[in-house]
Nucleic acid binder design. Structure first.
Lengths: 347, 347
DNA sequence: CTGAAAGCGCTTACAG
DNA sequence: CTGAAAGCGCTTACAG
């Protein structure tokens, strides 16, 4: 089928799709010139520019991004891969990423791994070639070696995961310090039997083991002994996991006077169980979380928590990503974003 | 620069990018055949197929989507445009959309309008041509006429917004009925002074006016009079808006015995204020919301709410969208998704 | 300041 | 069962 034979139709509407050639023809210039008017790459005389703009308006022309991307080898798209968008922490973080990306004329594509290993491997392999220019990745199940054996070269920045190997860009809060801060606060306000909910055994030290380490550090520093019976692992960090873990703790006869939860959602779940059992928060049991999601500002009681600077995480991650896109071979950087303690009512 | 002169380099890594031609050369077949092996569009002899697969593995080849998209005029991408990803209702809905889209080999791109008019107009204009195959759009500020004057032909499905004109595909719950159900439930359990929080004046009847209508209907049906002093408008549906509206109501001396909130977030904010003022929920004031976000299962008290079938909304919307992608000129359909009442503790 | 031509990496009639 | 060639809609050296 030749161009001259049949006009190109948009398959979905049967309306003619207008391309750069149509604009060029109408403006009586070459496609080159139209392209230059659009990109601003080359000086174009005012008269010509005006004619081109007129033709563009006339035809309602809008450049085809697939074609441009194919040509310039840039997709204008970055992917954010997280376990679940429905988890408020990720939803809020993605909101900031989308906003920061827009400022750079990038669009954000969402990938939800649900912690599935194949999904995470797909992310590591750069997703579909040519589809995205870079990836922000919050991993869950994948092992550290897999990062190191990564063959794909798509720029990638890890979110919230501290890979001690250091072969990959990443941005995170200092999880050990954050957990220690939370625990120390519970100690300072009188906690003597402090439970920890959210531990996970992971190779190569993921977020959870780091938080457990911080918890132990704070205990040590206060001269308090570490009681493994007070540490409850959870496989995920949903409200449900917090609620069930708290119930399990209580059911086995353990009565902590304070609980350090590895996420706000876990904390909210734990509070739910405590109140159902008739225990008062914080009077009987103080509860602290990590994440500072909006929900904790309005929950009953309002949630004391560790506040990571989510805006900084989003912006820093994008900065690392764009740096890496610009220079694929520069040294990987690991950036630690500040966190703070936000005291509300629950502890 | 000719192909033969210099091998093509991936700009970010300086590693050679492998294309279909490399695979073809290594497998000693034509690119056509490689393409056919990949797509399954044509029968390929077992021996050839094997050689091609071997070559693909050997080179780690993965097809370039921009090129494919350019050729087949399909992006494999749909956009979801919502006011804010950080709002749990949207986050949960998007999670379902992402999942349903994956089953169809589609990827989801996020657009956050924040209710900005230009952002919403950009969505209506189909975003960037060739970038997405279709759009799921949850509008906020845009006027009805703008849909009708829409020039762009990108398939688009409206989410949660009932455009009475009916010129556009959309899927939503029956907002009038949902509000009436909520209000009737409050009446049945003894409410006599029932406030409504979340009203908005909008042209052409958006979600908010419909809910107000349902509220009034239920009042009428019970023979109760409508008191404008009990209806509080809010500009947004965040926790904060609910909290402030509730405070305003109380501050002006109004003491409802029940509150119908136009979203769960508003309800949670209202509860926050009530408890801060020492009022018991539901004993002093019963509160009901709409959305059934996960948060309401664990809040204190747990939240009674109207549950829209979010999975159905996501799947139906995608179905409409794919139908429209397949046939751009079919009659627009307006689909009503079921909702139900979920009774928990707050009312 | 402007244009003709090549090519980004695919797929798909057309031909055998 | 397989291949040569055209073309998707752009951008960018190259040339003037």
């Amino acid at each position: 089928m030749l161009w001259e034979d049949v006009s190109v139709l948009d398959p979905s509407t049967q309306r003619p799709a207008v391309g750069i050639r149509d604009v060029a023809a109408l403006a009586r210039v070459s496609p080159t010139t139209v392209s230059n008017v659009l990109s601003g790459n080359r000086r174009v005389s005012a008269a010509t520019r005006e004619r081109v703009h007129w033709a563009i308006d006339q035809l309602g022309y809008r450049p085809n991004l697939s074609a441009r991307n194919l040509r310039v080898r840039r997709a204008g798209l970055i992917a954010v891969a997280v376990p679940e968008i429905g988890v408020p922490y990720f939803a809020e973080l993605i909101g900031h990423v989308v906003q920061a990306a827009r400022e750079r004329d990038y669009t954000v594509l969402i990938d939800q791994t649900e912690g599935r290993l194949e999904a995470e491997r797909f992310v590591l392999s750069g997703m579909n070639p040519g589809m995205v220019d870079g990836i922000l990745f919050s991993p869950l199940g994948i092992e550290r070696v897999e990062y190191e054996n990564r063959r794909d070269s798509t720029p990638l920045v890890l979110l919230g995961e501290r890979i001690s190997g250091g072969g990959v860009d990443h941005v995170a809060i200092d999880n050990v310090a954050a957990a220690a801060d939370a625990t120390r606060y519970l100690i300072e306000r009188g906690g003597r039997r402090i439970a920890a909910i959210g531990h996970q055994e992971r190779e190569g030290g993921g977020t959870a083991p780091q938080r457990t380490r911080g918890y132990r550090q704070a205990l040590d520093a206060a001269g308090m002994s570490y009681d493994p019976g007070l540490v409850v692992p959870t496989s995920k960090y949903h409200r449900r996991d917090g609620a069930l873990a708290m119930a399990a703790l209580l059911d086995r006869g353990t009565r902590p006077d304070a609980v350090f939860c590895y996420s706000d959602l876990v904390a909210l779940g734990a509070i739910h169980t405590l109140r159902e059992r008739g225990l008062r928060v914080p009077e009987d049991v103080a509860v602290i979380g990590i994440d500072d999601i909006d929900e904790g500002r309005y929950s009953t009681p309002t949630l004391t928590t560790i506040t990571p600077d989510k805006v900084a995480i989003a912006r820093t991650a994008l900065e690392l990503l764009f740096d890496r896109i610009a220079d694929g071979s520069r040294e990987p950087r690991q950036i630690v974003v500040p966190h703070s303690l936000t005291v509300r009512r629950s502890a």
